[in-house]
């Protein structure tokens, strides 16, 4: 069975490269002929999750997996972890710093948007260890 697997390292605080991983993911999905509806949802979610790695994490990676059933996006980082996930999931909740806010981030909408756009959304986090988010998008 054929599938696509790609890993994108994302560095903490690297705003000049922010968005490159999700741009490449979009490009690939367009080449695979993923429908516009799905594409739109993956675009939003992959950008949000990538930017969270840049803004909030100590570094991590974004992983793309595609098979005939769907698209999976996984984000893994090495810390600092989220103390209260239900709080982080709340619309408007943000701990973004001044720099991120000056660039227009920090509305506290990223995680809620990911959950809204993905068909399955899982998040787990451990303080001092890291956060892992996994999203699945059905292809039809």
């Amino acid at each position: 069975m054929s599938f696509i697997h790609a890993e994108y390292p994302v560095a903490s605080g690297d705003y000049t490269r922010a968005g490159e991983a999700s741009a490449d993911i979009k490009r690939r999905l367009k080449q695979l002929g993923v429908s516009s509806m799905v594409l739109r949802r993956v675009s939003v979610a992959s950008y949000e999750v990538e930017l969270n790695l840049v803004i909030h994490s100590l570094g991590g990676q974004l992983i793309l997996d595609v098979d005939q059933d769907g698209v999976r996006l996984t984000s893994e980082d090495v810390g600092p972890g989220i103390p209260d996930i239900s709080l982080a999931m709340r619309e408007g909740w943000s701990t973004a710093n001044e720099e991120a806010r000056s660039l227009g981030f920090g509305a506290g909408m990223g995680l809620p948007n990911m959950k809204r756009n993905a068909d399955d959304f899982e998040i787990e986090s451990e303080i001092g260890k890291g956060t892992r988010i996994s999203m699945r998008f059905a292809l039809t």
Partner: peptide, 20 residues
């Protein structure tokens, strides 16, 4: 309508093989 010229193949499986 979308212009599907960027698509590698109409069949997803084949498109994935081509991308590989």
């Amino acid at each position: 309508e979308p212009n599907s010229v960027m698509k590698l193949d109409d069949n997803l499986m084949v498109a994935m093989q081509k991308m590989e």
